[in-house]
Design a protein around this nucleic acid. Structure first.
Lengths: 219, 219
DNA sequence: GTCTATAGTCAGATAGAC
DNA sequence: GTCTATCTGACTATAGAC
């Protein structure tokens, strides 16, 4: 049997998802037309509506394809930790997303940047969707950090998790053209291991920051 | 002379800018039509083109109105520091933007959320514009932190500034509907002073985080 | 400076042949 | 499943009266 006979079951779907990932990342959801998208994918204009039903449903599919496995990986990485200390928990959370920036060949790098941008997406529906997909992993990580840091007021922990999440989101979304602070070594940007070390050092220190009197008072 | 005779010089301009701030925040740039915008502002459809020339020029004006004064404030706050230690530098940077979230009456709160979102905006022109407006303040803060932390490798400092910036951006952009981590006290969200304390504690600790061997090796 | 009316373009979606 | 052709609506921008 010739190899060519094994044709991907949904090649057109995949081509559309890959093109959508790239163009949504570059131009945003509203800025990407169905025409541009189907042209890039090399498929017919009507294919998106045939396979996904609508542009909105395509957006949802783009996130589901990668986000559900990524969060499943986060959950299993957390469960496999023998000694769930804060630093290890942070690394377990960071790794699945950082690994994607190294993969320039498949669209994972596109996706991870798109994701970083979408945390602050204006459209309500998309935010709700993302929140829903993250919820199970978030709940477990929150519980794990509460156990690892029993002395931390719960409100303050939630804020610090927000801060950690923001740092990751921004780091993932940043592109070569966003250089608010000049002087970044471009080659370090795609070194997931080094970035993980940098982020972990920064975030673990922030998580352990001493509680000032105003913070204690608010708790 | 009746008070009503004192009419703001460019009332229409201001109404447009306020409406743009709000709608851009809610629906993004592409998602906000001139029709929706002028209707909300209570002005004629043609007014945007008359006063600003185009939709793009309006977007630029929205940012210039608040960002230029905000960064000027950052620069003067930095220059007024007697002992420029890291924590004081961080506070000087955070304060002008956090103060805006308390002001629910004028559009400043809208603006600051819009700004948080725009750091990761896909459109190249807008990113370049924002970068340009930030450049003078960024350069000075970078220099101040380099002097305050002489033992820190320059590359690592630049990364940590990126992380700090991301944390701030995400915190500003987050709305009531974005609740990736459940359990945030809503009333704390608009307390700028408490938020400044929380952010400063977290960021200062991150900035001082010990350098791991992999980070030292990369420097 | 403000308005109406409209030009000119492009969007997302679909009907129906193959 | 894939295609062409096309519908309907919305968009930005502008011309020209007041």
């Amino acid at each position: 049997m010739p190899l060519r006979a094994i044709k991907p079951q949904h090649e057109t779907r995949t081509r559309i998802l890959d093109a959508a990932e790239e163009l949504f990342m570059q131009h945003g959801f509203e800025g990407t037309s169905m025409r541009a998208l189907t042209t890039r994918a090399g498929v017919n204009l009507a294919a998106v509506n045939y396979h996904f039903g609508s542009k909105d449903a395509l957006i949802e599919a783009v996130f589901r394809r990668r986000l559900d496995p990524m969060n499943a990986e986060r959950i299993s990485a957390l469960e496999e930790l023998e000694r769930p200390e804060p630093e290890a928990i942070i690394r377990a959370f960071l790794r699945p997303s950082l690994r994607m920036i190294e993969d320039a060949k498949s669209g994972e790098r596109n996706f991870i940047r798109l994701l970083g941008r979408t945390y602050t997406e204006p459209t309500k529906g998309i935010r709700a969707l993302i929140g829903q997909m993250y919820a199970p992993a978030m709940e477990r990580y929150k519980n794990a950090l509460e156990r690892a840091l029993p002395q931390m007021p719960r409100d303050e922990l939630v804020w610090r998790m927000h801060f950690m999440f923001g740092t990751l989101a921004y780091t993932l979304a940043a592109t070569d053209t966003v250089q608010l602070i000049a002087g970044c070594k471009p080659e370090d940007r795609y070194d997931a291991r080094l970035l993980e070390d940098r982020l972990t050092a920064f975030l673990a220190a922030g998580l352990h920051a001493p509680l000032t009197s105003s913070i204690k008072k608010a708790a």
